[in-house]
Nucleic acid binder design. Structure first.
Length: 607
RNA sequence: GACCCCGUAGCUCAGCUGGAUAGAGCAACGGUUUUCUAAACCGUCGGUCGCAGGUUCGAGUCCUGCCGGGGUCGCCA
C-alpha cells in the first residue's frame, strides 16, 4: 500500500502539483487504531504539507483522487487534520490471506536484515554456580531476540562469554578445594566468609578426591589451584549448559575470557541441544595477549593515559587508595568518569578484557553487537559503548539490552530466598515446577526493562488470565477444527504443508463478514510486526501480538454459537468450509510461527 | 552528588519509534452452552497517561526542570 501512496505523490509531482525532491521517509501507511477509520490510513498529506507549502486537506484531496482509481481500494476518505483513510476491497484481504496460507512457516520472514552480521551475547553467567532465575530471564530474552533477528533476515551469531579469568574463579577453586577436603573425610565446618557456600560443589570435591586422592593436599596453593580451578569451571559450565538446555536456550559459541590472554582454548567440547564449540582465538605458540593488543591500540589513539581518579562517591570503599593508574578516556565518549584498565596488582580489570572481547567480535566482522545484561550492570553501559566506539574507530555499534529483575511469587506472595545460605532460586527448579513453555512465555510477556512479577501458581492456571495457556489453546483449537473439518472435507491432509496447499485453492472471496475480515487483517499485520520488533530489538511484541490474535480467534469461534452461518465448518458446504478453514490455517500458521520464535511449543491439543 | 531504568484504570501491564475519541487482562457487576473444545465468548463499570513548562498541524510517546520508586557509582562480578 505504501508503494501505491508513493506512486500517487509521484504522479502529483510529475503533474507539477508538488515540488520535486520531497522527503518521503516519514510517510507511513498503516492500519488505524480505530477500525471505523477503514483498513489503512496514511499521513502523507500532513507530512508533505509543510515542505510543499500546501494545506494538508487540499493536498489530501489531490492524493485521494489518484488513489480512487486503484482496483484494490474500495473507498477513500479524508478525515481529521488530513488523514487519508482507505477501505480495501475484500479481494485485497483475500490476497493477503492467500499469501499467508501459501507461505506457511515462512510467512512473516523478512529480508530487512539483508544477511547483515549481528552478534547477540546473552547469559554469560559466571561459571561459579548454577543459573538462577535472573540469568534465566536474560537467557530467554537473548534467545528469542536471536530467533527474531534470524527470522528478519540477519546473519546472527549467538554467543556466551565465559568469565573464567578473574578472581572469582579462584574463589570458586578455593571453595571446591574445601569440598575436596570434605570428601576426604575432613570436617570443614561452615564455609568461610567470601567462599561459595552452595552445596553444588560437593560433587566436584568428590571427583577430585577420587581422581587425586591425597595428592592435592600435599601441594602448595599455587600448584593445586589451576588444577582445581579448571575442573570446577568445567563442571560449572556443564551445569549451566544443562540449565540452558532445560530452557531450550542455545548458543553458537562459548567464548573463553582466559583465551584472550593466554591464547589457549578451554578444552571443553559439548554435544546436545546447547552445543557449541569454544572458540580458538589465537594460534599457538606464542600466545598473544589480546587484551594488551587492545589497550595498545587505544593508547595509540590517545584515549588511554596514566592518571588519577577522584575517590568514588556513594557507598564508601574501604580499601580505597589514591594512586596513579592506567585509564581509558571514556569521558570523551559521553561517560561520567574515565575508567581503569589495570588493577593495583598489575592484572587487567574486567573492563580491559571486555574491551578485548568486543574488539574480537569486531575483528570477526560484526558491526552490530547486542549484549543482554542484568539491570545491575546498567552503570557499565556507557563505558562499554564508549570502548566499542573507540576500538572500532566509530564503525561498530553496541546495543545493550538491560533485563530487569524477576520477582517470584506464589499466589501473590513473594517467595523469600535466603542469600545468606547461598540459596538463590534456581532456573532449573522453576522450569521443573511450571514447565519450559510457561517460563519462556512469561519472561517474554513483558518489556525487558520493566520489573517482572512471576507467579508460579498463576502460570499453570488454565484460563484467560494465563497468557501462555490462552495462546496455546488458540493453536490447539485450530487443530481441533481441522480434525472435525474432515467430515465436510474428507480429503484434507493432516500435515501442515499439504493442508495449506489444499486450502490455498479455496475461494477466499467468500470471506466477507466484517469479523472475518478483521481477523484476516490481524493476520496480515504479522510481517510488519516482525520487522518492527526486530528493528527495536523487542521480542515481547510478538508475545503481545499472539495474545491479541488468539483473542480474536477465540472470539470468532464463539460467534458461531449465536450465528451458525459463521461457523468454520458448514455441513453440506465444502466451499465455504474450505474458505473458513483457510482462515483458520492462517491463524494457526501465524500462532505456530510466533510461538516458535519465542521458543514455546504449539500443541496439537490441550487435553 | 552523578548516571541509568521505571511512573498509564483499584491491581498487573500494552501502546506498533509523533497521529484521530489512550487499550487489554484481573478484580466488580450482568449475560451467552440442544455449539466446530464454555479451558471459551459478549457487555457494563473504571483515566488529570506522576507534576509543570517547552517543541508543532498534532505529545502517553520528543526536550527541560521538579516529585516518587528501583538500580549503579576505581581495582567487585
Amino acid at each position: 500500500m505504501l508503494e501505491r501512496v508513493h506512486a500517487a505523490t509521484d504522479a502529483l509531482v510529475s503533474a507539477g502539483k508538488l515540488p520535486a525532491g520531497l522527503d518521503k521517509s516519514r510517510i507511513v501507511v498503516e492500519p488505524p487504531k480505530d477500525a471505523s477509520h477503514g483498513d489503512m490510513a496514511t499521513n502523507v498529506a500532513m507530512v508533505l504539507a509543510k515542505p510543499a507549502n500546501a494545506r494538508p486537506r487540499e493536498l489530501a484531496e489531490a492524493v485521494a483522487e489518484k488513489l480512487r482509481s486503484d482496483p484494490l481500494i474500495a473507498k477513500v476518505e479524508i478525515a481529521g487534520p488530513g488523514f487519508i483513510n482507505l477501505v480495501l476491497k475484500p479481494a485485497a484481504w483475500a490476497d493477503a490471506l492467500h499469501a499467508a496460507v501459501v507461505a506457511g512457516a515462512n510467512y512473516g520472514k523478512s529480508a530487512m536484515g539483508a544477511h547483515k552480521k549481528i552478534n547477540v551475547e546473552y547469559v554469560s553467567a559466571n561459571p561459579t554456580g548454577p543459573m538462577h532465575i535472573g540469568h534465566c530471564r536474560g537467557a530467554v530474552f537473548g534467545d528469542a531476540l536471536a530467533n527474531l533477528l534470524i527470522f528478519a533476515g540477519y546473519d546472527v551469531t549467538r554467543e556466551y562469554y565465559i568469565n573464567d579469568a578473574g578472581a572469582q574463579v579462584d574463589v570458586l577453586a578455593r571453595s571446591a578445594f574445601l569440598r575436596y577436603r570434605e570428601a576426604l573425610g575432613e570436617n570443614i565446618g561452615p564455609m568461610p566468609e567470601g567462599l561459595y557456600p552452595g552445596d553444588y560443589l560437593q560433587e566436584c570435591g568428590a571427583e577430585l578426591a577420587s581422581d587425586y586422592g591425597q595428592a592435592l593436599k600435599e601441594m602448595q596453593e599455587a600448584e593445586w589451584l589451576p588444577i582445581v580451578r579448571e575442573r570446577a569451571i568445567n563442571m560449572m559450565i556443564a551445569e549451566i549448559r544443562n540449565d540452558l538446555m532445560a530452557l531450550n536456550v542455545v548458543h553458537d559459541l562459548f567464548f573463553s575470557e582466559r583465551s584472550l590472554i593466554e591464547g589457549e582454548p578451554e578444552e571443553v567440547v559439548f554435544t546436545g541441544g546447547a552445543t557449541a564449540e569454544v572458540i580458538v582465538v589465537a594460534p599457538k605458540p606464542p600466545p598473544p595477549d589480546l587484551v594488551a593488543e587492545a589497550i595498545a591500540k587505544l593508547r595509540a589513539q590517545g584515549v588511554v593515559y596514566e592518571g588519577r581518579l577522584p575517590p568514588p562517591k556513594g557507598a564508601p570503599v574501604e580499601d580505597y587508595e589514591d594512586r596513579e593508574q592506567t585509564l581509558f578516556r571514556s569521558t570523551d565518549f559521553g561517560d561520567d568518569v574515565d575508567r581503569p584498565l589495570m588493577k593495583s596488582d598489575g592484572s587487567y580489570t574486567y573492563f580491559a578484557s571486555d574491551i578485548a572481547y568486543h574488539k574480537s567480535k569486531i575483528d570477526r566482522g560484526f558491526a552490530t553487537m547486542i549484549d543482554v545484561w542484568g539491570a545491575d550492570h546498567g552503570g557499565y553501559v556507557k563505558r562499554m559503548q564508549a570502548a566499542v566506539k573507540a576500538v572500532s574507530d566509530g564503525k561498530a555499534e553496541l546495543d545493550v539490552k538491560l533485563v530487569q529483575l524477576v520477582r517470584l511469587l506464589r499466589n501473590g506472595e513473594p517467595i523469600k530466598m535466603s542469600k545468606r545460605a547461598g540459596e538463590l532460586i534456581l532456573s532449573r527448579d522453576v522450569v521443573a515446577e511450571v514447565g519450559r513453555d510457561a517460563v519462556r512465555f512469561m519472561m517474554l510477556y513483558r518489556k525487558n526493562d520493566a520489573l517482572l512479577d512471576f507467579d508460579l501458581a498463576k502460570v499453570i492456571e488454565q484460563s484467560r488470565d494465563n497468557a501462555v495457556f490462552y495462546v496455546q489453546y488458540g493453536h490447539a483449537r485450530g487443530q481441533s477444527i481441522f480434525r472435525n473439518g474432515l467430515e465436510v472435507l474428507p480429503d484434507l491432509p493432516a500435515d501442515p504443508e499439504g493442508r495449506a496447499a489444499v486450502l490455498a485453492k479455496a475461494n477466499l472471496a467468500l470471506l466477507d463478514d466484517p469479523a472475518e475480515l478483521a481477523l484476516i487483517r490481524r493476520i496480515a499485520q504479522f510481517p510488519r510486526l516482525i520487522e518492527a520488533a526486530a528493528e527495536a530489538h523487542e521480542p515481547h511484541r510478538i508475545a503481545f501480538y499472539l495474545y491479541e490474535l488468539a483473542s480474536e480467534f477465540h472470539g470468532q469461534y464463539s460467534l458461531g454459537t449465536k450465528s451458525p452461518h459463521l461457523r468454520f465448518i458448514i455441513q453440506n458446504d465444502p466451499k465455504m468450509t474450505a474458505a473458513r478453514l483457510a482462515m483458520v490455517q492462517g491463524v494457526v500458521g501465524v500462532l505456530a510461527a510466533g510461538l516458535a520464535l519465542l521458543g514455546v511449543s504449539a500443541p496439537e491439543e490441550m487435553r
